[in-house]
Structures are given as structure tokens and as C-alpha cells.
Amino acid sequence: MNAIEIHGLVKTYRNGTKALKGVDLTIGEGDFFALLGANGAGKTTLIGILTGLVNKTAGTVKVFGCDIDKDFAGAKRMLGVVPQEFNFNMFENVQDIIVNQAGYFGVPSKTAIRDAEGILKMVGLWKKRCAMARTLSGGMKRRLMIARALIHHPKALILDEPTAGVDVELRLGMWDYLRQINSHGTTILLTTHYLEEVEQMCRNAAIIKDGQIVRNDAVPNLLPLEKLFLEIIKT
């Protein structure tokens, strides 16, 4: 089964901007998939539609066979999202953020508190569980967002530039987390500007330009990625 199936996806914003112009994209279950593109290419809009933060104009989207037009709740249940910017309540503590997120997904607090321990230990935030989110360092906040996205055990994890502005050591650490998560069967869709990240971790990648997928292939077939990427965005 495919994790994500997108056909003819169009998004036109109210100001007339056409962010997506008929995107077709399929991501297999268990894949580690990269979506590449310059700023404004449509990556975040696509992710927004998948996760319910942006309303699509046309097209169909299925998550593990679940059509978002028919059962968006079912589709959302299978997704975890790590957005580009910090979007948690800075005045809540780490554990509350995680447990509340689980609650929104219908996970009872007792189960969530139990599961939070394992996830927070995995991302190295267990000792910080009682700390206010605003007191965390930038890297810790990034890890908190990953932990939050994993608390309801999603089948697919969507990460929108998770390593932007993160130092090298932390980035390498995050690669390890992501590989570990993927090795347990979780499908990963990643957007990034770091081509090295794609080469190191992803099996398949697509390049989006001006709201359209212009290349979609296995990563080895796209190498050297930097040369290809520059060729595409310059044409």
C-alpha cells in the first residue's frame, strides 16, 4: 500500500497565487522520501494540505488509502507533523505539550504519560520533561517537535525542514533519530534545503518547482544531486 497518493493537486490562494499546479506524487509505505525545491516552490503548501492546515483547491489526496475528502480524521490519525517553525505553547512544560498532543489524537492521558517517557528518552529530553518550553535551547525545541509528532505512533512522519538552523552535531543526531524511526517502519516525508541530508538518508526524492513536480526518482538516479538541483531551479 502507498503511504501517500496525490493526484492533480491544485492550490490557488485567495490573492491569486497558484502555489500548486496539478501535483501528482506517490510515496510508498516505509519509504524515506525527500521533497526538494527552492523557497516558494510549494513544499510547505503541499504539506499544509496533507496535514489540514491548508485547504486544497482541487485534486485528491490519500493517506494509506484514506481519502482526505471522505475521512480526513482517519487520514490525520496516521500522520505526525514536524513543522518548519516552533508552534507549541511556550508556557507549557515539555511533558504537557506531548501529553496534550496525544489527547487531541484521542490517546488517553495515562497511556500518553507512559509513552511520553520512551519518546522523550529517545530524543534526549526526559530530564527536561518538567521544563517550560520557552526555556529550551533551539535544538531541544526541534527535538520536542519530533517527540510531539511521534506520541500517537503515526504510520507516516512529515518533517518540514526539521534541521533548518540547527548545528552540525544536532543535525547528525537528528539523522540518527530519523533513521531509527524509519527502520521501525514509519514512512518519512522530508523537506530540506540540505542536499547532503537527502543523499545520506533518503531512498527516493522529488523536486518541485513553481508548484509542479519536475523530477521524481530514486536518490541514486539523481546523483550528483547538487548539480541536478541547480540545473532544474535555474531553467
Binding site: T51, G52, L53, F72, A73, G74, K76, R77, L79, V81, P83, E85, F86, N87, F88, N89, M90, I97, N100, Q101, Y104, F105, G106, R148
Partner: peptide
């Protein structure tokens, strides 16, 4: 703070 997105991405109706 955009923390409303925590709820919007969830299946909560």
C-alpha cells in the same frame, strides 16, 4: 503562537 496548529493537525472534529 501557532499552537492552534497542534489541534488543527489532529483528527479532533
Amino acid at each position: 503562537q501557532r499552537s492552534i496548529e497542534e489541534i488543527l493537525v489532529s483528527p479532533a472534529p
